[in-house]
Amino acid sequence: MAGILLSHTEKVYITHGVKNEYRSDGRSNIDYRPMELETDVVSHASGSARLRLANTDILVGVKTEIDVPKPDKPGLGKIEFFVDCSANATPEFEGRGGEQLANSISNIMLRAYQSAQAFNLKQLCIFEGKQCWKLYIDILILECGGNLCDAVSLAVKAALFNTRIPFVKAALMDGGNVDLQLSDDPFDSKWLDVGSAPLLVTLCRIGEKCVVDPTAEEESCSLVSLIVGVTGNPKYYNDYEDEEELPAFEAKCSVISMHGPGSVSPQNLRDAINQGIIAAVCLDEALGKTLFRERRDTEQFKRHSYGFLK
């Protein structure tokens, strides 16, 4: 990705390692690196999360605003992704240097969230055709250590899980205006339902095999990578009393995209997509359980907030 210099021998070493299911940090091809996640780190945002995946550091803040829905989708809210590649990550991002990478990440996130089965925009509706919530999801990339897309999607889902939207009473006044009444109590709000929000999994093709969660060094060895967006399972993000009554869950791909100059055979592509879905389902379960545990700790005042001071 950015400014990694590898010699030919180092590349050969990584490629041969992947062939034998053994990577330079001791992982197998389907292992993720350890992650650290903390929600509610920015007090000026409605919801926020910071995710650190080895050296990749992502901070996401969600801000809400009241807006007018689109005429062709009167019952739906709006959602906007903005990615900022901070120059803290690498001097190449100074000024407008990070814009290309930022746009490609925000586009793929938008595509992943566009499907109604991925994220339900109806929950953002205030008054049909007149007023709706607009979510600004601002993603700040503070350090790049490979696998940005996966880290961004995990952090976004965590930040959305952490987002509270105030209850608003809307009444239609004469003249077609809408009168909005907001409660004074900041806790008079609802959590967003993000159970089905998609997670992205990057599969990096190195040699003949695919690896998940590539490091920056591995990314520079690979010619082509595949990004799969897979919808999440609401079961892990809600405490349903009766789990049996839930409809059977099926992970769906909401976005698939290929990056890089290389090519893959259709058979390899199918295998890679399946591998990506399996990885996404595991990630989703781990994320949901972690977020739920953190929310419970917060409610019982057991949580310590660390931020960047740890």
């Binding site: 920015v42 803040g61 903005f82 900022d84 901070s86 000024g95 407008r96 600004y136 601002d138």
Partner: peptide, 21 residues
């Protein structure tokens, strides 16, 4: 000495449109 000051879009009470520039 080359400095760049940038503010996250969610850093202020009202959302900023541009982090820098």
């Amino acid at each position: 000495v080359n400095c760049q000051y940038s503010m996250a879009t969610f850093s202020t009470g009202e959302r900023k449109n541009r982090p820098r520039g």
